[in-house]
Amino acid sequence: MKNKIINRRNFIKGGLGGAVVASQLKGKESQAAGAFDHYPDSMGVLVDVTRCVGCRSCEAACNQEQGLPEPEKPFNDYSVFDEVHPHGGHGREERRTTEYNYTIVNKYNVPGVDHPLFRKIQCNHCLEPACLTSCFVNAYSKTPEGAVVYDPTVCVGCRTCMIACPFYVPTFKYGSAFKPRIMKCVFCHETRLKEGRPPACVEICPQEALTFGKRTDLLEMAKSRIRSNPDKYVDHIYGEKEAGGTAWLYLSPVEFDKVGFDVHVPHEPVINFVRDFLSIVPMVLLIWPALFTGFHLLSNRKDAKSQHDEDNQEV
């Protein structure tokens, strides 16, 4: 069953193949790369999985800060960790971010570890965001502070960003066909980050499992934690290189795939795939409707993948 599934990244790689034709557009390519200088002082968050106790305070604080809809259960109801979500991320049946939750904490029972581990998910705020580069109407921007933010007024609801994101983060707000809206963590940019304050989740975390700071300082801090506790951490900072580098970084006591991370995310910025893909944009304008339908079908197939061979009749 799994083989039949076209995952989003493979799809983009597939698009790449088709776009090799367009490789004569070299000029455009290098321009795109140059246009993407990193902001050296941009902020980030270091998530230390060894410290998280799964209290869901971050989920609660996020909901309050962002004025998100009422949850199904109170945030201190820990039965959510045992829920099975057929549409979960990464082909697992786990909770994922939705238009109601910009952040989610999931629980992992890892063999050989005598207590459960918890891992927080939210937008990783890539240094070279695939959502941004894949967006035909420039609805996304990366702020100098480090946030990847989104402008709903220009969004046409094509959902390419959802397919481009290597972390399955942006979600689409349904029931608003005429007013499309992508929902995802915005690093509390408008309410906090802009003024140099940490996002709400970081501020509430009792265990300081979330550390806010300059990304460069955080990397140094992460390395020092690994160096002084080599038995406590695996020697890897997830997000230092993944997807070309992300503002949110992670430390873990076990191999990252055991706590829900996709360890196959390429280290090259996803932008490099997308960039080739983008060179077919002029073509896209011609075949937009067909392409659009394609995206739609693909994302439906993705949704349907764990729906146990239930055929997608709408095809």
Partner: peptide, 29 residues
């Protein structure tokens, strides 16, 4: 712990302890 002044202390290269948790973190840890 994550206020602007607190983060600015990290600009001092002489500072040895660069990851000292905040008060809430120190208590719970």
């Amino acid at each position: 712990r994550f206020g602007i002044e607190a983060l600015a202390t990290l600009d001092d290269p002489q500072l040895y302890h660069r990851g000292t948790p905040g008060l809430k973190g120190a208590y719970h840890l």
